[in-house]
Design a protein around this nucleic acid. Sequence first.
DNA 1: AAATGTACTTGATCTAGATCAAGTGCATTT
DNA 2: AAATGCACTTGATCTAGATCAAGTACATTT
Lengths: 193, 193
Amino acid sequence: MFQVFFTHLQEKVVLSANEQALIKTYFTPKKLRKKQYLLQEGDVCRYFVFVENGLLRSYNVDEKGNEHMIQFAWEGWWMGDIYSFLSGELSTYNIDSIEDAELLMITLAGFEEMMLKVPVMERYFRILFQNNIISKERRLINSISYSAEEKYTRLAAANPQLIQRIPQNLIASYLGITPETLSRVRKNLSNKK
Amino acid sequence: MFQVFFTHLQEKVVLSANEQALIKTYFTPKKLRKKQYLLQEGDVCRYFVFVENGLLRSYNVDEKGNEHMIQFAWEGWWMGDIYSFLSGELSTYNIDSIEDAELLMITLAGFEEMMLKVPVMERYFRILFQNNIISKERRLINSISYSAEEKYTRLAAANPQLIQRIPQNLIASYLGITPETLSRVRKNLSNKK
DNA sequence: AAATGTACTTGATCTAGATCAAGTGCATTT
DNA sequence: AAATGCACTTGATCTAGATCAAGTACATTT
């Protein structure tokens, strides 16, 4: 259950057996079936979760009922509404699973205590967040700078696994375009070849 | 020269006088005149910089010559191309100053050594990056979910200082809309009142 | 196996925002 | 003080992508 987790941690920091054992105690495993919610808007995000396997998504729903994909997370990724998690404010996010998933969950109290007891986790999260900023910044540049077709081809180039694994209508939403436009963009690209 | 800097640090972590003295040694002060470059595309981003005062911007320039604002940074903010800084790869970013600025610069070697010598800086940057993720995620949601008018009003609500301090054409670029559209949006909003 | 639902495609139309173009008012340079 | 150059505005037109609508193909439920 902690296999992917510790593999992922050890890619960024070195952990002793003692530290690993201690870290484990802060997490609660949880299984989530396809389509089940982990968080619904209006609730507080009480857990920051690591995905051992499976696939989750987070999204907002606007006044017209349209979903806007914020993030996808599969094996080795973290998921949550960090703002709500840290501040205790109500979340506007929905989080549910696209595929059956196994998760490791930590509360805010656990998160904070773990940092004090296992200081190397400060380093781990510093590096994790650092990388996250880089990818969010890229997505942002993509979003403000390019046409629908370019957004898609750049995403496909930077993140081919995402294209294979995520349904097309969710990719469209992730890019901020309609499913119809994405369908036409793809048709267009396949004709070009 | 380090006033804003240590005030900012102490908002997030506690530092002894010794730690402060040691931290200082890793930074080089620099003054940057209005319109001067700190980084040009094609160069490697050798410094991560803290803005003591003044105002910087980072942006990409696309094939058509259009600028796309990535970030603004004034007193108390950090600026750089984190990806290029950490990886040593060439940057696509340009960074220059909108207002005369005083900066504190650290190299990658300095950054890494500082983390080892003053471990509480891991915590500082973890918290800094954490907050940065929250604001980038908001900007991203704004970008994929809303109309030009909504993008502007939401930015103005979340970040009124930005509206006051940044020229309108740069705000337009930051939002991913044209200056003409932003001008019309503002006219429209002032008529509504 | 039938029925229902959902993802995706394709076509027709509409519209928000881009583009192009000209004009105004400041600020900076000479 | 004149001249040059931006930032911003306003108008006219164009277009990429949204919306609306219908049809097809799987997948899931009953």
